[in-house]
Design a binder for these strands. Structure first.
Lengths: 344, 344
DNA sequence: CTTTAGCACTCTGTAGCTAAGAGTGCTAAA
DNA sequence: TTTAGCACTCTTAGCTACAGAGTGCTAAAG
């Protein structure tokens, strides 16, 4: 744990962090006295800043430059010094209106829109995990025959999602046979979360059913597959170009690494999943992140729910020099609105 | 139309283009004699190159640099000088295997995979338009009641696509009423392309139906909406980071403009649609492109079909200095395989 | 003991300069 | 028509000089 600082040091640390976030330039002692006058000369501030550097809260890019916050400095700032941000009415309006579209009945549209807004309000890149069905509970399964060869599997969860998938049916089934299979499956699966529908459970059911009805192999493989597919979740990105506006990403090589990351959906998914916590907003600064390529970045995550069941994560990714206060506030609002919208 | 060149000029132009494509450095007269020895001194080549510049096929970045091809130069090369590329067995293998996955039943997966492969084999960015349903013909409509409040609309086209969408139904319909509506719609819409299902036609049907059955308004709005939605098509991107490897994109500002473009799906769609031609591969070099932000790029497009019906476009986007021969050959193969795969 | 003024020192970034290298265009001869 | 030779142009890399910003230290003042 970081040692506590006396009030004067805290004031100075705050001044440095706030200023550096705003200007992206190292902050010198002069600047601190000028902007946050506290009746002290620059020499005194200099001494204090030297102390703060010794304690690990500040670093110097080179001997004769100002100071910039270290990872520890940001951490202390976020934990102890940050003042909550007031969102402007305009921001508030933008966030709300992004979700109020009457027509957005498909959840993917809502999520996609949210990603856009989250990135534009924060000026960072946003990542939102699509709904995780595996955390929803199985509610109902239907199979609708389309023609001789195809059927439509419809899966309904307790969180109100409906996923469907077309399957080929090699063998034809009579209406009655189909009905029999479907009701058997419904009975067995009801109330389980999608997570709990494991391959072994499916195999068991398959063995069971085969005794009664031997025609089903193909249909079963396909059900299994369709469930498996639901477990891989889309991650929606917004404002990927925003990182290019940050001075810390003027190096093409860094840009490449970031964009490369953005193309790897499963990886993004894992990062979001690892970072997030159901109950609160999580701030991961620099090397606090597991994944190497974002250890110069800060990732802030929150989760959204449907009927009190957590089903997805939203994240904002940017350089460690990020307006923490603002992003966290925006994230809070976004989560609130999203929860309301999705639970109605 | 560009004037015809004598053989010697053609040889030299080809040499310059080929070399510049490979090295990204302006090509001087010495280099041409050294690499493509044709029994002439560099002075002669110099004279010829000066002619080629006068004719508009070559340009000089500055007085004392070598020459690079102009847009016209590339055009002449593509139209007259290019030799077809032999794909290596490895490439061939990669392309084929990207599509042979047994499990990819969903067309979006196939398209997505194709985008990935197309970009990695060409080392450029690829864009593939998802299937355009509006060019398919209406085949069958079904509505499956899910519970009291919701139903599932299933739309089947002659190209074998099945699109479906969940709708809310404010008023409850009896099974019989629903059946009546559905069969009426099927009768009216059968054989029309989705394109032809205009708002006015829908309104007409609506009036018609209202006479018989007044409960349907809500259901109708939603059918309309779901059709409208099918008209906006996804564009799948692959290898967006590849442009960063090109030396012409070392400027952060150019990168930003490109990436910005990539985020605007509807725009990409329009560009692909405008550029492509059903019957052949189209090469748009530099300012031949309509859209301003890609006038330093070349876009090469091809189309893919299902049962001889064109339903989508694939594109490769990169700097004008692009390996035309290779990209075009790869595009041809890709189109072939894709057509085969989708029509089976 | 704390604060501050003063000053020497360090490091960066920019501007200007030079020299090397690449390539051209022109001229005159083959 | 081709080519050798040469003066000329432009870019790039490296070097130096210098202004600007900021520090750390010392010694004096509170």
């Amino acid at each position: 744990m970081a040692p506590a600082l006396n009030e004067r040091k805290e004031q100075i640390l705050r001044a440095v962090v706030v200023n550096y976030i705003k200007t992206a330039e190292p902050v010198g002692s002069r600047t601190v006295t000028r902007l946050y006058k506290m009746g002290l000369s620059s020499a005194t501030i200099r001494n204090e800043m030297a102390d703060l550097e010794e304690l690990g809260f500040l670093v110097q890019p080179h001997t004769s430059a100002g100071r910039i916050p270290s990872q520890l400095g940001y951490r202390y700032f976020v934990d102890n010094l940050m003042e909550p941000d007031d969102l402007s009415d305009v921001d508030e309006q933008v966030i709300r209106s992004s979700l109020s579209f009457e027509k957005m009945r498909e959840i993917e549209q809502i999520i996609n829109n949210s990603a856009r807004v989250l990135s534009s309000v924060t000026n960072q890149t946003s990542l939102i995990m699509g709904p995780q069905f595996k955390k929803s509970a199985f509610h109902q399964l239907r199979i609708l025959p389309l023609d001789e060869k195809r059927g439509l599997v419809v899966l309904i969860t307790d969180t109100g999602f409906i996923k469907n998938k077309v399957i080929d049916m090699q063998q034809q089934l009579t209406q009655a046979e189909l009905h029999q299979v479907v009701s058997y499956l419904n009975q067995k699966l009801y109330g389980l979360t999608i997570d709990q529908v494991t391959t072994s459970l499916i195999n068991e059911l398959k063995r069971d059913l085969f005794k009664r009805l031997e025609i089903l192999e193909q249909a079963f493989i396909l059900l299994e597959e369709s469930l498996k597919e639901e477990k891989q979740i889309r991650v929606f990105l917004g404002g990927t170009t925003n990182i290019l506006n940050q001075p810390e990403f003027k190096d093409v090589d860094k840009i490449r690494r970031m964009l490369n990351l953005f193309e790897q959906e499963p990886l993004l998914f894992r990062i979001l999943e690892e970072t997030s916590n159901e109950n609160d907003i999580v701030v991961r600064i620099g090397a606090e992140n597991e994944y190497e390529d974002i250890q110069e970045c800060t990732l802030i995550t929150g989760t959204y729910k449907i009927h009190d069941k957590t089903i997805g994560t939203l994240g904002v990714l940017g350089p460690t020099r990020m307006d923490y206060s603002r992003v966290i506030t925006v994230m809070r609002r976004m989560v609130d609105y999203l929860n309301n919208r999705l639970s109605s």
